[in-house]
Amino acid sequence: MQRVNMIMAESPGLITICLLGYLLSAECTVFLDHENANKILNRPKRYNSGKLEEFVQGNLERECMEEKCSFEEAREVFENTERTTEFWKQYVDGDQCESNPCLNGGSCKDDINSYECWCPFGFEGKNCELDVTCNIKNGRCEQFCKNSADNKVVCSCTEGYRLAENQKSCEPAVPFPCGRVSVSQTSKLTRAETVFPDVDYVNSTEAETILDNITQSTQSFNDFTRVVGGEDAKPGQFPWQVVLNGKVDAFCGGSIVNEKWIVTAAHCVETGVKITVVAGEHNIEETEHTEQKRNVIRIIPHHNYNAAINKYNHDIALLELDEPLVLNSYVTPICIADKEYTNIFLKFGSGYVSGWGRVFHKGRSALVLQYLRVPLVDRATCLRSTKFTIYNNMFCAGFHEGGRDSCQGDSGGPHVTEVEGTSFLTGIISWGEECAMKGKYGIYTKVSRYVNWIKEKTKLT
């Protein structure tokens, strides 16, 4: 034993070699072989497995989906700052455009905790909710729209109204504003409101030439003092309507412009014939205590009207009353817009006519005020429907199939267009061939041609 100890002390290297040989010859039971080890760690190889990531292109799944990435790591994937920024906006807080917040056709661009709407022409605001041009839906104005110097929408209202708090709607500024039905039992019968379409306001006024200088022999019209197929109006439903009495009662109609003036057809009036105007009328054979009678003290036909040349060209006249009318729910003026808007309103496509005229061709006159909704007829169809001249200051309205029309005794009465609950004068009943005849239409004086003249002559002093 002493000898062994001496050998170990003198030859430590020998001992180490012996131990190493023993270990190498022993069977290893701690580690699995290569094949079995792979069965336990069965993990798919990654895209760049075996390579240094710093030297390969980034992978979106590896960089940002398996674990949260930084902007720089995302930049490695896209290799483009702009594309990385677009991805980053949604990656950080989701897609803010998912709810489609942009209105009126706006395009949404996502941002971090926010979004941006790219608005089409005519709109602005956070969600493109603000109209900035009158060309689109009248700028959301209830009545009139004008573009300011910086191309912003400025709404306005006709006389007797003021802008509401929203700067879009119009509200009454006087007790009985024009064009409004205020009798409670008839307010439910107000005709369907007309909503502004998209309009090209630059070209809204037709490029028409008034044929002022045409000389033409007097034409022989049949029954051209021209509501057939209409309905009984309720008291106060058309408070701007008046009836004219002269040699015979209810020979023509008219509309209240203001307390002192009536507008009617020029062919209705004769110099030297006494005319009485009755406002607030409903049943011409009954006294309903809503009527107001006034005498006409002055007749002003349009300066281009000449019955000797043509009885229905420039067929418009103004009547001055001896005493002002007292405005109330049964006696209310009709609204008159400017030339541009009167023309736009007419193009809405349908209007209402009213009167006490004959209820059928050569038949009896109506006792109760009649009204009828009539569609506008395109000019080409209008011209083809008659052998008589249709001037540019006239328009056609009615039904091709016949059966409904204005008729004798309705002449001078109103053709009105309702705009968001307020009625505007767009025409004056003038003439036609018979009444409600198939293929024939009622012919009306186009008020847009005469609004400046009306307003100039009827100013209240």
Rank of each mutant, 00 (worst) to 15 (best):
V4R: 13
I7M: 13
M8G: 13
S11K: 15
L14F: 12
I15Q: 04
I17S: 03
C18I: 14
L19V: 07
G21V: 14
L24G: 04
C28P: 05
C28I: 02
T29W: 06
V30W: 14
F31R: 15
L32V: 14
H34W: 07
H34D: 10
N36V: 11
A37Y: 03
N38M: 07
P44V: 13
P44T: 15
N48Y: 10
G50H: 15
F55C: 04
V56Y: 08
L60S: 15
E61F: 13
E66L: 04
E72R: 15
E76T: 15
V77G: 15
N80S: 15
N80D: 15
T85R: 13
T85N: 07
E86Q: 15
F87I: 15
K89Q: 13
Y91E: 15
V92G: 15
D95N: 14
E98W: 08
S99R: 05
N100H: 09
C102D: 00
K109L: 07
D110S: 09
D110N: 09
D111N: 09
D111K: 08
C117S: 01
C117P: 01
F123R: 04
E124H: 06
G125L: 00
G125I: 00
K126D: 14
E129M: 02
L130H: 11
T133M: 05
C134Y: 02
N135P: 04
K137L: 08
C141M: 00
K146T: 14
K146Q: 13
D150P: 07
K152V: 09
V153Q: 04
V153G: 05
C155D: 00
C157I: 00
A164Y: 03
N166C: 02
N166V: 01
Q167R: 07
K168N: 06
S169R: 11
E171N: 08
V174C: 04
P175G: 07
P175M: 10
G179K: 01
T186H: 11
E193N: 12
T194E: 12
D198P: 12
D200T: 06
V202K: 12
S204F: 13
A207V: 09
T209Q: 11
I210V: 12
L211G: 12
N213K: 06
N213E: 09
I214V: 12
T218M: 07
F221A: 12
F221W: 12
F221G: 07
T225Y: 13
V228S: 11
V228M: 06
G230K: 12
E231R: 12
D232M: 14
P239V: 01
W240D: 00
V242L: 02
V242T: 03
L244N: 02
G246K: 05
V248F: 08
V248A: 07
V248Q: 11
D249Q: 13
G254W: 00
G254H: 00
I256H: 00
E259D: 06
K260N: 06
I262Y: 00
A265E: 00
C268V: 01
V273Y: 06
V273R: 12
V277R: 00
I284K: 08
T287S: 13
T287D: 13
H289K: 12
T290M: 08
K293R: 14
N295F: 06
V296A: 05
V296M: 02
V296Y: 00
I297F: 04
N304A: 09
N306E: 05
K311V: 07
N313K: 10
H314V: 03
D315A: 02
L319E: 01
E320I: 00
L321T: 02
D322Y: 02
P324L: 03
L327D: 01
L327H: 03
S329W: 06
V331T: 06
V331L: 02
C335Q: 01
A337K: 00
D338A: 07
E340N: 11
E340I: 13
I344V: 10
L346I: 07
L346W: 11
L346Q: 08
K347S: 14
F348K: 08
G351I: 02
Y352T: 07
G355C: 10
V359S: 14
F360H: 14
G363W: 05
V368E: 10
L369M: 14
Y371S: 10
R373A: 11
D378S: 12
D378G: 09
R379M: 15
T381V: 12
L383R: 14
R384T: 13
S385T: 13
F388Y: 14
F388Q: 13
T389Y: 10
Y391Q: 14
Y391P: 15
N393Q: 05
M394P: 01
M394A: 08
G398I: 03
F399D: 11
H400Y: 13
G402H: 06
G403C: 07
G403M: 14
D405L: 14
C407R: 05
Q408D: 12
G409N: 13
G409W: 07
G413F: 04
P414L: 12
H415T: 00
V416R: 02
V419G: 01
G421H: 07
G421R: 09
S423C: 08
L425D: 01
T426A: 00
I429S: 15
S430A: 09
S430V: 14
W431Q: 13
E433G: 11
E434T: 14
E434N: 12
C435Q: 03
M437P: 07
K438M: 08
Y441R: 03
Y441A: 07
I443N: 01
Y444I: 06
Y450R: 02
W453E: 00
I454G: 00
E456Q: 14
K457P: 02
T458G: 03
T458E: 01
K459R: 07
